[in-house]
Design a protein around this nucleic acid. Structure first.
Lengths: 223, 223
DNA sequence: CCGGTTTGTCACCGGCCTGTTACCGGGGCG
DNA sequence: CGCCCCGGTAACAGGCCGGTGACAAACCGG
């Protein structure tokens, strides 16, 4: 589940990004309006959070641009007491708004409500630390890097490790959860799959930093 | 959003279909009661418009049949002054009615109200990026190019992809939404349909730019 | 009922996934 | 020291899946 966050206030932007990342969303950040429009095209996020006051293009203009080609949920951020802004934003097709200041908890609740309303709530967000999984697209993104395509099995494996991020998962369990295998003996499969996955996600596959070998299994290291 | 329209009067049926198509609904037409029941099973529409006087099975009978297995909104069409019909229709579980003659505007307003009441009011977009769908003419226009004629299935496929523009739609979902198929196995159909659609909408069908193959499905690229 | 269009089915190809075998190297242990 | 177990790596083969063309069946409008 991808969310585009556009705000020129770095502090607020990072706070929002942190909150959403924590909740498992994949966050794309933009610090001005034109970047927001560009990233919207490039990333096709599932939801957009727009500050109204931004350089290059205002939140209004960005919203307008987005609405010419997509019905993706848009949440606007306004400052208290600017009633006209609200009216204008909703008139342009924004779906919800928040007046600053707001609590992260409120933001999260509103965003979940929007996604639910848009019928996108099916795909649970899966992410931890610098690793973001997109189950729909079968891709991972490590930090700010490019999204990498994964095969079905690689995705399953990573999903299992991610669900237990930071903790060792035994080979036994991985075999069962990825292949549905009953008995052991198929350790080779797991070896191969881990190897192939490392080739894709590790900066140096020879010295794994993320997908570490642990006693009787593997673990995903997140910071 | 699928609507099943059942009326033996071809003229009225087409008028309704045109009106709804214009408004962005996907219309399924039936010219008699038994066809209506069959199509209801096959298509699982989100709303049904039923004329009372029809050959094979009357609107009453169709409504009754539908109500044995679904709570989908049903709108009945009656002739003025047949009070008993109204009572009987509503007793059978119809949600609303219109007396002929009625204006297209009225029909649309009532249908929207019904869908809203049922909590289904997501209207599928008919355009995104450079792609514009005309549901009435069964055509697409790519950018500034010529409008291309599409068949019923091609149109539905494109509509589904367009409703999720920029996101991968799994083969499973496409099969269900385009054919109403229950289970897999019919991947071949989808392959063919995609192939045929690409021949029509892609500049170079050998190297698809719009209708891309993605992991476990397809996606429409709009930028 | 007829002719053209649309849709479903079959066969084949080529590329990528996946499972399999083989080999290497290190650490524990007798 | 030699053996063995274990994980990592490479190479390869079979199979699955998507793309494509051809053809048959079903459908549709007149």
């Amino acid at each position: 589940m991808k969310v585009l966050v556009a705000d020129d206030d770095a502090e607020l932007r990072e706070l929002i990004a942190f909150t959403l990342g924590q909740a498992g969303y994949l966050v794309i950040k933009a610090s001005d309006g034109s970047a927001a429009v560009r990233l919207f095209s490039a990333e096709s996020p599932d939801l957009v959070v727009l500050d109204i006051n931004m350089p290059a293009l205002s939140g209004f203009q960005v919203c307008e641009a987005i609405r010419t080609r997509s019905r993706v949920p848009v949440m606007m951020l306004t400052v208290r007491g600017e009633e006209e802004d609200l009216v204008r934003a909703l008139g342009l097709g924004a779906d919800d708004y928040l007046t600053k200041p707001f609590s992260p908890r409120t933001l999260l609740a509103r965003i979940r409500a929007l996604l639910r309303r848009a019928g996108m709530e099916n795909t649970a967000p899966v992410a931890a630390g610098r690793i973001g999984l997109d189950l729909n697209e079968h891709t991972v993104r490590i930090g700010e890097g490019e999204a990498v395509r994964l095969t079905k099995l690689e995705l399953r494996l990573l999903q299992m490790l991610l669900a237990n991020a930071g903790h060792t998962v035994s080979s036994e369990r991985l075999l069962v959860q990825v292949w549905g295998h009953r008995s052991g003996g198929d350790r080779q499969l797991l070896k191969q799959l881990v190897h192939r996955l490392r080739q894709k996600i590790e900066a140096d596959p020879g010295a794994p930093a993320l997908l570490r070998t642990a006693a009787a299994g593997y673990k995903l290291v997140v910071d």
